[in-house]
Write a protein that binds this DNA or RNA. Structure first.
Length: 321
RNA sequence: GGCGGGGUGGCAGAGUGGUUAUGCAGCGGAUUGCAAAUCCGUGGACGCCGGUUCGAUUCCGACCUCCGCCU
């Protein structure tokens, strides 16, 4: 029990200062940061993802930041594989892995594992998409109901992403998604979670006052614009062959700036929509957090007070002081 | 001052003499290879006063207010 290595996680909704807390903590103990962020993985998406500056990145080793082109696709499974590998690597260097980010599905996949399922297939997905364009997603849900009634019952007919995935799994393997998941559960695969392997310390940055969080979110988006978010997006669109359906361009901020550049709405509307999207993201993140009882809420009165106090709290909790 | 038009939930915007359009935002929830995604659920209103009526958000009148035009 005593020999389980410590792994620190810092998570929380967007705009709560996770990144600066991680940087501050790195001043106090030997850590390497493993980013848990589905948007920061992309190179060139800097301002809009509030990526640490090059200087900050060079001060502490960071992983899974900016290592993909914006045209590429990354997934929870990719993340889980990469993160597990990196945790071992960091530990082997005698340092503490510090997982920081707000992509809660990635944390979930890492904490609790994933079933043995086939990966995504671009071909199969475009096949399904083509069918959907012709007959609508509802007919695809009916198709799913015919081959995998259990999944069809679980997945809402309007939830095209999950309908597509369930269909994809069946088309790829000939085995029902629901069946694969049941088998995995029975086989105990899903139980191989990270908690038994490591001394996981989960610290969650949560504000008691939602208004305060939203105020920060609104301000932060404006400051991203001042830092050149529109220019960055224009640049990205020049440098890569991007389209709106790519994960990188679905990221908050970029998505709305693209629509603005396409003339879908004006500048002010773009701001409002991006801010609203961020608030909704924060709400979904909070929903994930509420489900994780093992989290340790950091006592934040005001985030402006700086990260030092929180570092002390974390170190106390780790028994380092 | 005169004429015309309008005042509907946080915002936008339909509509009806009796049964709370809708969209956005907000709130709650789902979440296993796109997750900063994709979905599901949900409270809340008819400017003010009086009249007609069994019943007015809806009809009538006054008032307040906003917008446009005219003087």
């Amino acid at each position: 029990m005593k020999d389980r290595k410590t792994v620190i996680c810092i998570l929380g909704p967007t705009a709560t200062g996770k990144t600066s807390l991680a940087l501050a903590l790195s001043e106090h103990m030997p850590v390497e940061v493993i980013s848990v962020d589905s948007a920061m993985v992309y190179a060139g998406l800097d301002v809009g993802t509030a990526k640490p500056s090059p200087d900050e990145l060079s001060r502490v080793p960071h992983h899974l930041v900016g290592m993909l082109a914006p045209t590429e696709v990354y997934s929870a499974a990719d993340f889980r594989k990469d993160a597990r590998r990196l945790i071992e690597e960091v530990l082997s260097r005698g340092k503490t892995p510090l997982l920081v980010g707000g992509t809660m599905l990635y944390f979930n996949a890492l904490f609790f594992g994933l079933d043995q399922l086939p990966g995504a297939s671009v071909e199969v997905r475009s096949q399904i998409q083509a069918k959907a364009n012709e007959n609508g997603w509802l007919s695809l849900h009916e198709e799913l109901a015919a081959v995998d009634p259990l999944s069809a019952r679980r997945i809402h007919p309007n939830d095209k992403q999950r309908v597509q995935r369930a269909l994809e799994v069946f088309l790829l393997t000939g085995v029902r998604l629901s069946e694969m998941q049941e088998k995995a559960l029975a086989g105990g695969q899903y139980l191989s979670c990270l908690f038994s392997e490591f001394d996981l310390r989960i610290f969650s940055l949560e504000l008691a006052d939602r208004r305060e969080l939203y105020r920060r979110i609104d301000l932060r988006f404006k400051s991203m614009l001042e830092q050149g978010l529109v220019e960055e997006t224009v640049q990205l669109r020049q440098n890569y062959h991007l389209c709106a359906s790519m994960p990188s361009m679905r990221a908050i901020g970029y998505r709305q700036v693209c629509a603005y550049l396409e003339g879908e709405y004006d500048y002010d509307a773009m701001i409002c929509r991006a801010q609203a999207a961020s608030r909704q993201l924060a709400k979904r993140q909070i929903t994930w957090l509420r489900g994780w009882r093992k989290r340790n809420c950091l006592p934040i009165q005001s985030l402006e007070s700086g990260a030092e106090g929180l570092c002390e709290f974390i170190q106390d909790d780790l028994g380092l002081n």
